[in-house]
Amino acid sequence: MAYARRLEQSASLLALLAIWAVVTMLVGAIPSLPSPVEVVVAFADAAARSSFWQEVGRSTFRVYLSFAIATVVAIPLGLLIGRSEIFSDLTFPALEVLRPIPPIAWYPALTIILLTPANIVRFIIFLAAFFPILLNTIEGVRGVEEEYPQAARSLGATQFQTMRHVVLPGALPSIYTGLVNAMGLAWVSLVAAELLSSSGLGYFIWNAFTAGEYPNIVVGMIAVGVLGYGSSALLRRLGARAIPWLSAANA
């Protein structure tokens, strides 16, 4: 059974590769579309150059830095908004005006305020990560049964201790969902923002396009895909460790 399963799964991936190869190499339906062989060659070539790895490092660092800042800002804010109706009324409507604006749409406006493309990219990733984390934190806090904080208060916990030991862990599964979504959107927005800027993997892709080095477009896409996938996998592993009472429940 397991063997047949593996076989089918491999067939799936091979078929994907085969379709790509047939379209580009044998049929030649779209001559300018890079073939798998061209991409492999281009990848080997790029991997040998330090400039490629610099772009990889730059993009990765941007995502992680902005993601970290968004986490540090959004979680406490979400805890407060979720817990205090007054604070929620005073802050949330203003945030709701900004939330539906796609992060990438900020790019032109930010050129005036933040000036350098690198800062703009960082801020756009921050925005992309900030709102999913915020919304999920609020939702998580509101989903905590009121009796848990009440129990904590009756056991002698202060407001802060209740927040730290009861509300935060109670909201954690939802926060964690927000973090995973945020990581995905951070990479989506990184590429979009870097396509418009002058550095990073997004720029690498756009530059390959404008310079006519089409195989490098796919090299860039694969690199971003692998990095995004790896980031999500990393988060999943950290999440399982941070929420042991849930992983035990599912096992």
Binding site: E147, Q150, R153, S154, H165, V166, G170, I243
Partner: peptide, 19 residues
């Protein structure tokens, strides 16, 4: 307000699931 000298047990079990 609540105080540790007045302990409460709720209808549904309210052990903190995360502890």
């Amino acid at each position: 307000g609540p105080d540790p000298s007045r302990g409460v047990v709720f209808q549904e079990n309210r052990l903190f699931p995360w502890k």
